[in-house]
Amino acid sequence: MPDYSVYVMVVYLFAALVYGGLAWVWGRAGRTLALRLTQMQDREGDNHSVGR
């Protein structure tokens, strides 16, 4: 029987790339957005305190 290891390896690498890649990209995007949100909220807080 032929050895199909190459097909198996490609499938597992592809799956790892898709699932792992998405987890990495979305996780990073979430962290960046959280940081921007905090900065924006801080800036708004400063503006309010100056106004007062």
């Binding site: 699932y19 998405l22 987890a23 959280a34 949100l37």
Partner: peptide
Amino acid sequence: LLLLKAREIQQRRTL
């Protein structure tokens, strides 16, 4: 993955 993407979407919409 669903919750990870949902968090990103929620933050993007708030921003």
